[in-house]
Design a protein around this nucleic acid. Structure first.
Lengths: 154, 154
DNA sequence: GGCTATAGTTCTAAAATAGAACTGTCAAAC
DNA sequence: GTTTGACAGTTCTATTTTAGAACTATAGCC
């Protein structure tokens, strides 16, 4: 497959996969949501090779998920900060964390707990229908071809 | 990194990434949710090499995400069907589709539309707090170390 | 000048992937 | 009863990606 044009496929999943569909990118984003911002910090917490880190950060900047913000003029140093587009990846990350909590846990219990500042409680993320608010399940969803792909699928 | 032990890391995201954190696996899962079940069907719709498809399906079976169910005795033929653990990946896939719809769209419009059979409407998936039902945003969440990782993080 | 911190780049060896051909089983067609 | 075709893989080689370590560059501090 030509991964370099995956972001132009008539499929929103493919387009997302083009951006965040590799292991390092997802782990880098986890660090971003944990407020990590600097090259050395990413490198030492992830044990990623510097080469790949450099490349992945560039890619995330290119796709508008991170902004490269100077925090020192001489020498020039930059921090990588989530844009709104990047912050909007939160449901993906949280869905993955929740699935891991549910299905890949061990006897030690959850690695992290999440507190919702708005209500003050420890919570799990739940995916609901924007129209009726009910919890979503795969079997209750029917797929239609949209304007971006008129041939029927599924 | 030792990707082969990523599923034992004290981090639910890492564990999930160990299972679904590569491009082909995510695309294969998309097909699963579109009711694709057979080797040839995956291969022809994804243009994945047979080698990799074989390997990824084995991995998904090994992790309990797909079941290999015989549908013909002679010759022996199998279908790959989502288990409950696999069906529970739905929020991840939908979160990715929704992000792609929102941030990677083009002038043609959405490739697919989703209808919630329960309420009959076209919908978007929304992630909410299990406790108060409010829509979740990254900045409203505070992270605590859980029993599975007592050293503080973030 | 020598040491440290930060943010990368460059190099070679090892691993993963692409692309195509091949194997084996059986049913149906000729 | 031989050929064709569908299905579900496996095997092979060439190319691409990644790992791991070393190197470069800028500047502050002693």
């Amino acid at each position: 497959m030509k991964w370099d044009t995956l972001d132009e496929e008539p499929c929103s999943l493919s387009r997302t996969v083009a951006v965040v569909g590799d292991r390092w990118t997802l782990l880098i984003l986890r660090e971003c949501f944990l407020r990590v911002r600097r090259f050395e910090a990413f490198q030492s917490s992830l044990q990623i090779t510097r080469h790949l880190l450099s490349e992945r950060l560039k890619k995330l900047v290119r796709f508008g998920i991170l902004r490269r913000v100077p925090y020192s003029e001489a020498p020039k140093r930059y921090e990588y900060i989530l844009t709104q587009k990047g912050l909007d990846l939160y449901p993906i990350i949280m869905a993955m964390v929740h699935w891991g909590d549910t299905h890949m846990g061990d006897e030690r219990g959850r690695p992290l707990l999440h507190e919702h500042k708005t209500c003050g409680k420890l919570f799990d993320p739940v995916m609901v229908c924007s129209e009726c608010g009910e919890v979503l399940h795969a079997k209750q969803v029917h797929v239609h071809a949209g304007p971006g792909r008129e041939e029927a699928v599924g």
